Amino acid sequence: MILNTTHYNPDHKQIIADLVGDSFSLVQKLKMKGIGSKRMIIDEVSPNMQTMMNRVSDINYANIELRPKGILVMINQGLKNFKWIIPYYQLVIYKVNGSSLHAQGRFIHFRNSKTFKENKKFFDKLLDEKVKYDMQYAMPEFI
């Protein structure tokens, strides 16, 4: 689900909490050594997300925030802000010449640049959180 968060809407907070959980507490954020990525350059997006990209030749940026049950991808388009809410069970990550996030019939590809390389530890943390979430629902192994 993509929300236009340019202007404050009290309903958005509840929608986000229902889908990916409330934000981590301050203590959890400190233990995790941060829950947000640095901004990354968007290289390509799926056709159904083109409306959120700058029409002129400006560079598009996005950053990611971890939540207990998913992630938030914050996209900036000029003066507009969008949040793409992705629960972990829908998230698929590909590492091909940068990184791609796929979910809900959409994708966003981040350019393999200096800003992306600075986020390597963040992506490792993201994969750890996704695996931890998926292990809660793992099928038991029978002998």
Rank of each mutant, 00 (worst) to 15 (best):
K121G: 09
M135D: 07
E44I: 04
M49L: 15
S46Q: 08
N112P: 02
D58Y: 10
I93Y: 06
I35K: 13
N112H: 12
G70N: 09
M1Q: 06
Q14S: 11
L101R: 03
F123G: 05
R55P: 01
L126H: 01
L79P: 00
I59H: 02
K33S: 11
N54Y: 11
M53D: 03
F24W: 06
I86G: 01
L79A: 11
L26T: 13
Y8P: 00
E44R: 15
R55E: 01
G21D: 00
N54C: 10
I59W: 08
S57N: 12
P140T: 09
V45R: 06
I85Y: 04
N54A: 14
A138L: 07
D58C: 11
D58E: 09
Q14T: 09
I16W: 04
A103E: 02
I93N: 06
K132N: 10
G70T: 03
N60F: 03
F24P: 02
N76A: 15
K132E: 02
M74F: 08
V20E: 01
G105N: 09
K31H: 08
I16Q: 07
R67W: 02
N54D: 06
D22H: 12
R111W: 00
S46K: 11
G21Q: 02
R106F: 02
N119W: 00
N60Q: 08
S100Q: 07
I2D: 01
N9K: 14
K38R: 11
N119T: 05
V73D: 01
Y137N: 08
R39N: 13
K31A: 11
K13Q: 06
G34H: 10
D43I: 03
L3T: 09
Y133G: 04
F107Q: 02
F116T: 00
Q104T: 05
D124I: 04
Q90A: 15
I42H: 02
S37W: 04
K132G: 03
N97I: 08
G105W: 04
F107N: 01
Q77H: 13
Y61R: 11
I85L: 06
M74Y: 10
E129A: 15
I71D: 02
L30N: 08
Y8R: 10
S113W: 06
L19D: 03
N48A: 07
I35N: 05
T51I: 09
I35D: 08
I86S: 01
P68M: 09
M32L: 15
Q77W: 05
I108G: 01
G105P: 01
Q77K: 15
A103G: 10
S99Y: 10
T115L: 13
P140W: 07
V96K: 15
I2H: 01
A17Q: 04
E141K: 14
K83T: 05
E44A: 13
K132W: 07
K69V: 01
W84G: 02
R67E: 00
Q136V: 06
Q90D: 11
I41M: 13
S57D: 12
K95E: 07
G70W: 00
D43L: 14
R39W: 04
V27A: 14
I86C: 05
P87G: 13
S46N: 05
D128Y: 14
T51A: 12
K33L: 09
S46G: 07
